[in-house]
């Protein structure tokens, strides 16, 4: 496919895939450092369904708060702005791309399971590396394959061709995307995240999760998600869209500096945390 055609296609995505207004407002408000919990709470409260969904997630075992959180304001001050923004983002994207019950060629249930597991694993790896805002790492993993679900939603026919090719040839979904579309889900995800005014690091991580060194100053973070993706596939958490495990980027592997014992411990922890965070699945 020609490059001009690609550009046209991608600009079409920008028009179609727009973030719900509430989520957009929350991102804007939280981008302003002086914003208060009350302002954010006010913005979220405009969407009753979103509000109850966020409270459900805030009360999940993943955060383990010893009391019941009953108001959004409480959720914000307890979990912090970053966590809440991520919850709003996750919940809104779930709404946009939830499995609709009909049998699909692209396994959306498996997709979200893979994404959630990746979010959890990224958080665990970030903690291991001593990265301070580990709540951010969760959203990096959760949204890393955003491009796939966007493609399935807005380029359904083309993407069906990608899935078919994956099954016929048993190749990586990324290679199939390149063959059928001429671009991959990482590029698509990056463009969409950019359009949504998501934080720069998140955009970079989505864009380069298959090629961490190209993320430059965000390489460390891209490497975390890259490895999380591979680990989740290795122990079959969710469905990454193909039955193969992508090649591990040697630089990413070195950066994480994991030995056999800590990988074993990580796998156990991943499985435990996935169980605790079922409230995060869109179903």
């Amino acid at each position: 496919m020609a490059r001009t055609n690609l550009k046209k296609q991608l600009s079409k995505i920008s028009d179609l895939a727009t973030l719900p207004v509430v989520a957009n407002n929350v991102i804007q408000i939280t981008n302003n450092p002086k914003s208060s919990a009350l302002e954010v709470a006010k913005a979220i409260s405009q969407d009753a369904a979103l509000t109850s969904r966020i409270l459900k997630m805030a009360n999940s075992a993943m955060y383990g708060f010893p009391q019941k959180i009953t108001t959004i304001n409480h959720a914000i001050v307890i979990l912090g702005f970053a966590n809440i923004r991520n919850l709003v983002l996750a919940a809104s994207i779930y709404d946009m791309f939830a499995p609709n019950g009909q049998p699909q060629l692209f396994d959306r249930v498996g997709f979200w399971e893979h994404s959630l597991a990746c979010g959890i694993t990224s958080k665990l790896l970030a903690k291991r590396l001593g990265i301070k805002n580990i709540e951010e790492a969760f959203i990096w993993g959760l949204l890393h394959d955003l491009g796939k679900i966007v493609l399935d939603t807005y380029f359904h026919t083309d993407f069906a061709g990608v899935i078919k090719l994956v099954e016929e040839k048993n190749i990586l979904i990324r290679d199939a995307e390149m063959e059928v579309l001429g671009y991959d889900h990482a590029e698509v995800g990056g463009i969409v995240a950019g359009n949504w005014n998501l934080p720069q690091t998140l955009i970079k991580v989505i864009r380069f999760h298959h090629a961490p060194p190209q993320a430059n100053e965000s390489m460390r973070l891209a490497a975390i998600v890259h490895m999380a993706d591979i680990f989740c596939r290795a122990i079959d958490l969710g469905n990454g869209g193909d039955r193969k495990i992508p090649c591990m980027h040697p630089e990413a592997w070195e950066l994480l500096d994991l030995d056999k014992e800590s990988i074993k411990a990580l796998f156990t922890e991943m499985e435990q945390e996935v169980i605790k965070s079922q409230a995060f699945l869109p179903i």
Binding site: V22, N24, I29, N32, P33, K34, Q46
Partner: peptide
């Protein structure tokens, strides 16, 4: 109910910019 995107609100933007200066 109509929900307004706040980035279209000029007052909000002005406020944000002055707040950012204070932050610096």
């Amino acid at each position: 109910m109509k929900i307004t995107p706040i980035e279209k609100d000029a007052g909000f933007l002005r406020q944000t910019i002055s707040d950012l200066h204070e932050q610096i």
